[in-house]
Design a protein around this nucleic acid. Structure first.
Lengths: 206, 206
DNA sequence: TTTTAGTTTAACTATTTGGTTAATATTAAC
DNA sequence: GTTAATATTAACCAAATAGTTAAACTAAAA
């Protein structure tokens, strides 16, 4: 046999949730075992240690995200077109895996270096993106601003409502969970429009 | 005597830092005691438990933030003017107390209800704000969108770069910490311009 | 100066929790 | 069906750490 695939995946899935909800320090091996309906010793049998398990789960999270996001960067597209695609895919993917932002946020305060290293090891290339933005600004297609500011803005508008879910629901939507889902759903289009209205310079009609 | 004020404040200050640097789960009661130069038992004598201490630290954080934010809401101002003031004060205050977003993040995943209650108990009134935004949209002064979306956007653009500090520094700024400080400093104006360009409808010249 | 109420400490306890071990159950090979 | 390899479990261990206790200290009141 050598390692039951059912079991190993069950562990991974439940570890994903536990780590996502509680962060590395808050997550409990016993709790992961309970979620998966197995004995705690099995976790160590399959994945050796909490740390090792965490690293695999984190890599899995990026394996989900990165390929989808990369598809949205087509070199023929304008920055605005890229933003439209990126925002839609980003929000859609996080809707399916809402643990991911918590996962990242928790690890930022825990082991930021490991996280930075992991992201740098993916195909995501922020320098290329910065250059492309700068070029369009120089060509008068986008409002002048530091490209980093634009990138931060795009990410902020995508991620924040997931991290702040209980606050958005509790403070802005009177606890209405359906309204929250609609708000997120609407953001797939809303966020891109919001950004583009701010940065796009319309070409003068020929 | 009944509780030495020096001691209780010394505890609070050092707890604020310990929780801020390590998060709730990473913080150690012994470490807080050591920082404050007192015996660990005193922590419990003054604040009963780790969770109770954290709750008070959290309240203290809001006592810092809320009055400053409230000053930015002048009923005579337009929504855009309010946003300008709000963003500047928000970013300035968090720059002085960068621990605060971390507290909020922890409480969101740990005791969201308690957090929502805490915020509701302040003078901050999101319903009033929503109405004001809606009114200006109806008057044709702002682009039509759900007021909640605009509020989420403002908060997202303010908070995110603090939470993602190591990522912004490590991935967008080649680890340059001075560049990070400048980026944040610039955002005091940049974020408001970004938002206003997107939502403000210029009045036709009379 | 003695008493008393409140404050602080050193030493201790209980619990939590990541990890191990040795025994048991299951599956596949022969 | 017996054996050998693999998978799973119950019970345990050790370290870390939140929380307690009882004694010692301090300062104000009597």
């Amino acid at each position: 046999m050598k390692y039951n695939k059912d079991t190993s995946e069950k562990i991974l899935e439940n570890a994903f949730e536990e780590f996502g909800e509680n962060g590395y320090n808050g997550a409990r091996m016993q709790s992961i075992a309970d979620r998966a309906g197995i004995n705690k010793a099995l976790l160590h049998y399959y994945y050796r240690s909490k740390d090792a398990l965490f690293e695999i789960v984190m890599k899995k999270a990026f394996q989900i995200m990165v390929p989808k996001l990369m598809k949205t960067f087509n070199s023929d597209d304008s920055v605005c077109e890229s933003i439209e695609k990126f925002v839609e895919i980003y929000i859609e993917t996080i809707m399916k895996h809402p643990q991911i932002p918590g996962f990242v946020i928790h690890e930022i305060s825990n082991k930021p270096d490991r996280l930075v290293r992991l992201i740098k090891s993916t195909e995501i290339n922020f320098n290329l993106l910065k250059q492309k933005i700068q070029k369009e600004m120089d060509e008068g297609k986008l409002v002048q601003m530091a490209p980093e500011q634009l990138i931060v803005n795009v990410l902020a508008l995508c991620v924040f409502p997931f991290m702040a879910k209980p606050l958005v629901t509790g403070l802005l939507l009177d606890g209405d969970k359906k309204a929250y889902k609609k708000l997120i759903e609407d953001r797939k289009k809303e966020v891109a429009s919001f950004i583009i209205r701010s940065v796009k310079i319309e070409e003068p009609k020929s």
